[in-house]
Protein backbone atom coordinates (compact mmCIF):
# COMPACT_ATOMS: atom_id res chain seq x y z
CA UNK A 1 0.00 0.00 0.00
CA UNK A 2 1.28 3.44 -0.87
CA UNK A 3 2.29 5.74 1.99
CA UNK A 4 0.71 9.19 2.35
CA UNK A 5 4.02 10.63 1.18
CA UNK A 6 3.93 8.56 -2.00
CA UNK A 7 0.32 9.62 -2.64
CA UNK A 8 1.13 13.30 -2.16
CA UNK A 9 4.14 13.13 -4.48
CA UNK A 10 2.08 11.29 -7.08
CA UNK A 11 -0.63 13.90 -6.87
CA UNK A 12 1.88 16.75 -7.30
CA UNK A 13 3.21 14.98 -10.35
CA UNK A 14 -0.30 14.66 -11.75
CA UNK A 15 -0.69 18.39 -11.27
CA UNK A 16 2.65 18.91 -13.01
CA UNK A 17 4.21 20.70 -10.08
CA UNK A 18 6.86 20.07 -7.50
CA UNK A 19 5.86 19.15 -3.96
CA UNK A 20 6.89 21.48 -1.16
CA UNK A 21 8.39 19.86 1.93
CA UNK A 22 9.21 21.67 5.17
CA UNK A 23 11.62 20.66 7.94
CA UNK A 24 11.36 21.56 11.62
CA UNK A 25 12.95 19.86 14.64
CA UNK A 26 10.51 18.45 17.21
CA UNK A 27 10.51 20.43 20.44
CA UNK A 28 11.58 23.66 18.73
CA UNK A 29 10.96 26.25 19.98
CA UNK A 30 8.86 24.10 22.38
CA UNK A 31 6.98 20.84 21.90
CA UNK A 32 3.63 22.67 21.55
CA UNK A 33 5.19 25.56 19.59
CA UNK A 34 6.55 23.12 17.05
CA UNK A 35 3.07 21.67 16.51
CA UNK A 36 1.68 25.16 15.85
CA UNK A 37 4.50 25.83 13.38
CA UNK A 38 3.64 22.58 11.60
CA UNK A 39 -0.01 23.71 11.41
CA UNK A 40 1.16 26.93 9.75
CA UNK A 41 3.13 24.99 7.15
CA UNK A 42 0.23 22.66 6.38
CA UNK A 43 -2.28 25.51 6.18
CA UNK A 44 0.06 27.48 3.91
CA UNK A 45 0.14 24.72 1.31
CA UNK A 46 3.14 22.57 2.21
CA UNK A 47 2.63 19.06 0.86
CA UNK A 48 4.68 17.23 3.47
CA UNK A 49 6.63 17.86 6.65
CA UNK A 50 9.87 16.43 7.96
CA UNK A 51 10.00 16.26 11.73
CA UNK A 52 13.62 16.53 12.85
CA UNK A 53 14.80 14.37 15.73
CA UNK A 54 17.05 16.75 17.72
CA UNK A 55 20.45 15.13 18.26
CA UNK A 56 23.47 16.03 20.34
CA UNK A 57 26.02 15.66 17.51
CA UNK A 58 24.46 16.85 14.24
CA UNK A 59 27.41 16.75 11.82
CA UNK A 60 25.22 17.35 8.75
CA UNK A 61 23.73 20.55 10.13
CA UNK A 62 24.80 24.17 9.95
CA UNK A 63 24.45 26.77 12.73
CA UNK A 64 20.68 27.42 12.40
CA UNK A 65 19.49 23.82 12.78
CA UNK A 66 22.20 23.16 15.39
CA UNK A 67 20.85 26.02 17.49
CA UNK A 68 17.23 24.88 17.06
CA UNK A 69 18.13 21.28 17.97
CA UNK A 70 20.15 22.48 20.95
CA UNK A 71 17.21 24.51 22.17
CA UNK A 72 14.90 21.51 21.80
CA UNK A 73 17.30 19.28 23.73
CA UNK A 74 17.67 21.88 26.48
CA UNK A 75 13.86 21.80 26.69
CA UNK A 76 14.23 18.10 27.40
CA UNK A 77 12.71 16.74 24.20
CA UNK A 78 12.59 12.91 24.12
CA UNK A 79 11.72 10.19 21.63
CA UNK A 80 8.07 10.24 22.74
CA UNK A 81 7.87 13.97 21.90
CA UNK A 82 9.22 13.34 18.41
CA UNK A 83 6.60 10.65 17.86
CA UNK A 84 3.83 12.81 19.33
CA UNK A 85 4.79 15.65 16.98
CA UNK A 86 4.72 13.26 14.05
CA UNK A 87 1.31 12.04 15.16
CA UNK A 88 0.06 15.62 15.37
CA UNK A 89 1.10 16.29 11.77
CA UNK A 90 -0.44 13.11 10.40
CA UNK A 91 -3.68 13.67 12.36
CA UNK A 92 -3.92 17.02 10.59
CA UNK A 93 -3.90 15.00 7.36
CA UNK A 94 -0.35 15.85 6.31
CA UNK A 95 2.15 13.44 4.87
CA UNK A 96 4.94 13.39 7.42
CA UNK A 97 8.31 11.73 7.93
CA UNK A 98 10.98 11.88 10.60
CA UNK A 99 14.54 12.94 9.79
CA UNK A 100 17.06 11.55 12.24
CA UNK A 101 20.67 10.64 12.73
CA UNK A 102 21.14 6.92 13.20
CA UNK A 103 22.00 6.48 16.88
CA UNK A 104 18.57 7.43 18.27
CA UNK A 105 17.03 4.71 16.06
CA UNK A 106 19.54 2.11 17.21
CA UNK A 107 18.96 2.93 20.87
CA UNK A 108 15.17 2.94 20.49
CA UNK A 109 15.38 -0.44 18.80
CA UNK A 110 15.44 -0.69 15.02
CA UNK A 111 12.24 -2.74 14.64
CA UNK A 112 10.52 -0.78 17.39
CA UNK A 113 11.34 2.57 15.83
CA UNK A 114 10.00 1.59 12.40
CA UNK A 115 6.84 0.28 14.04
CA UNK A 116 6.42 3.44 16.16
CA UNK A 117 6.71 5.62 13.06
CA UNK A 118 4.01 3.58 11.34
CA UNK A 119 1.80 3.70 14.45
CA UNK A 120 2.06 7.51 14.49
CA UNK A 121 0.88 7.57 10.88
CA UNK A 122 4.34 8.51 9.60
CA UNK A 123 5.26 7.71 6.00
CA UNK A 124 8.93 7.04 6.55
CA UNK A 125 12.28 8.17 7.87
CA UNK A 126 15.14 10.16 6.34
CA UNK A 127 18.47 8.86 7.64
CA UNK A 128 21.28 11.26 6.58
CA UNK A 129 24.15 9.36 8.20
CA UNK A 130 23.08 5.78 7.56
CA UNK A 131 25.48 4.66 4.84
CA UNK A 132 24.43 2.08 2.27
CA UNK A 133 26.83 -0.49 3.77
CA UNK A 134 25.15 -0.26 7.19
CA UNK A 135 21.56 0.07 5.98
CA UNK A 136 20.26 -3.50 5.72
CA UNK A 137 18.79 -3.97 9.22
CA UNK A 138 16.90 -0.70 8.92
CA UNK A 139 15.61 -1.47 5.43
CA UNK A 140 14.24 -4.79 6.66
CA UNK A 141 12.53 -3.24 9.68
CA UNK A 142 11.08 -0.40 7.61
CA UNK A 143 9.74 -2.85 5.03
CA UNK A 144 8.01 -4.86 7.74
CA UNK A 145 6.43 -1.68 9.12
CA UNK A 146 5.42 -0.51 5.63
CA UNK A 147 7.25 2.82 5.76
CA UNK A 148 9.57 4.57 3.32
CA UNK A 149 13.36 4.56 3.59
CA UNK A 150 14.60 7.90 2.32
CA UNK A 151 18.33 8.26 1.66
CA UNK A 152 20.40 11.30 0.85
CA UNK A 153 22.71 11.42 -2.16
CA UNK A 154 25.31 14.13 -2.82
CA UNK A 155 27.08 15.71 -5.81
CA UNK A 156 30.12 13.56 -4.95
CA UNK A 157 28.13 10.31 -5.13
CA UNK A 158 29.42 8.28 -8.07
CA UNK A 159 27.02 6.93 -10.69
CA UNK A 160 27.72 3.40 -9.54
CA UNK A 161 26.85 4.31 -5.98
CA UNK A 162 23.77 6.31 -7.06
CA UNK A 163 22.42 3.06 -8.45
CA UNK A 164 23.00 1.27 -5.15
CA UNK A 165 21.59 3.98 -2.89
CA UNK A 166 18.52 4.72 -5.01
CA UNK A 167 17.96 0.97 -5.15
CA UNK A 168 17.23 0.86 -1.41
CA UNK A 169 15.32 4.16 -1.34
CA UNK A 170 11.56 4.57 -1.38
CA UNK A 171 9.23 7.58 -1.18
CA UNK A 172 11.66 10.04 -2.69
CA UNK A 173 15.38 10.49 -3.19
CA UNK A 174 16.84 13.33 -1.16
CA UNK A 175 19.33 15.17 -3.37
CA UNK A 176 21.76 17.33 -1.40
CA UNK A 177 22.15 20.44 -3.55
CA UNK A 178 25.77 20.97 -2.65
CA UNK A 179 28.76 19.67 -0.76
CA UNK A 180 28.16 21.04 2.69
CA UNK A 181 25.85 21.24 5.66
CA UNK A 182 22.30 22.53 6.06
CA UNK A 183 21.80 26.30 6.10
CA UNK A 184 20.57 29.23 4.08
CA UNK A 185 22.54 30.21 0.96
CA UNK A 186 22.32 33.16 -1.40
CA UNK A 187 21.95 30.90 -4.43
CA UNK A 188 21.25 27.26 -5.20
CA UNK A 189 24.34 25.45 -6.36
CA UNK A 190 24.50 24.40 -10.03
CA UNK A 191 25.48 20.97 -8.82
CA UNK A 192 21.85 20.40 -7.77
CA UNK A 193 20.45 20.30 -11.29
CA UNK A 194 23.31 18.13 -12.52
CA UNK A 195 22.76 15.71 -9.65
CA UNK A 196 19.02 15.48 -10.35
CA UNK A 197 19.78 14.73 -13.99
CA UNK A 198 22.19 11.97 -12.99
CA UNK A 199 19.62 10.48 -10.62
CA UNK A 200 17.01 10.43 -13.42
CA UNK A 201 19.37 8.18 -15.39
CA UNK A 202 19.22 5.48 -12.73
CA UNK A 203 15.88 5.84 -10.95
CA UNK A 204 12.21 6.57 -11.57
CA UNK A 205 11.61 7.66 -7.97
CA UNK A 206 10.66 11.29 -7.28
CA UNK A 207 13.68 13.47 -6.48
CA UNK A 208 13.51 16.26 -3.90
CA UNK A 209 16.27 18.83 -3.54
CA UNK A 210 17.38 20.12 -0.15
CA UNK A 211 20.26 21.97 1.55
CA UNK A 212 20.49 25.70 1.10
CA UNK A 213 17.12 26.25 -0.58
CA UNK A 214 15.90 29.33 1.31
CA UNK A 215 13.92 31.87 -0.74
CA UNK A 216 10.79 31.74 -2.95
CA UNK A 217 12.99 32.50 -5.98
CA UNK A 218 15.24 29.57 -5.20
CA UNK A 219 12.23 27.32 -4.58
CA UNK A 220 10.77 28.32 -7.96
CA UNK A 221 14.07 27.58 -9.66
CA UNK A 222 14.41 24.14 -8.07
CA UNK A 223 10.74 23.37 -8.80
CA UNK A 224 11.42 23.66 -12.54
CA UNK A 225 13.52 20.49 -12.52
CA UNK A 226 12.93 18.59 -9.26
CA UNK A 227 9.86 16.72 -7.95
CA UNK A 228 10.19 18.17 -4.50
CA UNK A 229 11.65 21.26 -2.83
CA UNK A 230 12.85 20.92 0.77
CA UNK A 231 13.08 23.98 3.00
CA UNK A 232 14.57 23.79 6.49
CA UNK A 233 16.89 26.44 7.90
CA UNK A 234 15.00 29.35 6.31
CA UNK A 235 11.79 28.32 8.13
CA UNK A 236 13.59 27.88 11.44
CA UNK A 237 15.28 31.26 11.09
CA UNK A 238 11.83 32.87 11.26
CA UNK A 239 11.34 31.46 14.76
CA UNK A 240 14.87 31.51 16.15
CA UNK A 241 15.39 34.03 18.93
CA UNK A 242 12.07 35.74 18.25
CA UNK A 243 8.85 36.28 20.16
CA UNK A 244 6.90 33.15 19.22
CA UNK A 245 3.69 34.73 17.95
CA UNK A 246 5.57 37.30 15.86
CA UNK A 247 7.84 34.55 14.58
CA UNK A 248 4.82 32.48 13.60
CA UNK A 249 3.48 35.36 11.50
CA UNK A 250 6.83 35.66 9.75
CA UNK A 251 6.83 31.91 9.19
CA UNK A 252 3.34 32.08 7.68
CA UNK A 253 4.35 34.86 5.31
CA UNK A 254 7.42 32.96 4.12
CA UNK A 255 5.51 29.65 3.87
CA UNK A 256 2.76 31.19 1.72
CA UNK A 257 5.25 32.79 -0.65
CA UNK A 258 7.26 29.56 -0.91
CA UNK A 259 4.10 27.63 -1.73
CA UNK A 260 3.05 30.16 -4.36
CA UNK A 261 6.51 30.20 -5.91
CA UNK A 262 6.78 26.42 -6.03
CA UNK A 263 3.38 26.07 -7.67
CA UNK A 264 4.07 28.79 -10.25
CA UNK A 265 7.31 27.29 -11.52
CA UNK A 266 7.49 26.68 -15.26
CA UNK A 267 7.95 22.97 -15.74
CA UNK A 268 8.61 20.95 -18.77
CA UNK A 269 5.77 18.45 -18.88
CA UNK A 270 6.83 15.13 -17.43
CA UNK A 271 4.63 12.15 -18.07
CA UNK A 272 2.53 10.73 -15.28
CA UNK A 273 3.67 7.26 -14.29
Amino acid sequence: MATSLERVLHQAKNENRAALIGYIPAGFPTVEGCKRAIDVLIDSGFDAVEIGYPYSDPVMDGPIIQEAADQALRNGVKAKDVLATLHHATERGAAAVVMTYWNPIEQFGVDEFAEAIAQAGGSGVITPDLSFEQAQPWNESAARAGINTIYVVAPSTTDERLRKVTGITSGFIYAASLMGVTGTRTSVSHSAQELVARIRQVSDLPVAVGLGVSTPEQAREVATYADGVIIGSALIKELLGKDFDKGLLGLQELALSLAAATKSANREVRGVQ
Binding site: L130, S131, Q134, P155, S156, T158
Partner: peptide
Protein backbone atom coordinates in the same frame (compact mmCIF):
# COMPACT_ATOMS: atom_id res chain seq x y z
CA UNK B 1 27.83 6.27 9.58
CA UNK B 2 28.48 9.50 7.71
CA UNK B 3 26.80 11.90 5.30
CA UNK B 4 26.84 10.50 1.77
CA UNK B 5 28.92 13.50 0.65
CA UNK B 6 31.94 12.03 2.48
CA UNK B 7 31.78 8.53 1.05
CA UNK B 8 33.80 9.28 -2.08
Amino acid sequence: YVPEALIA
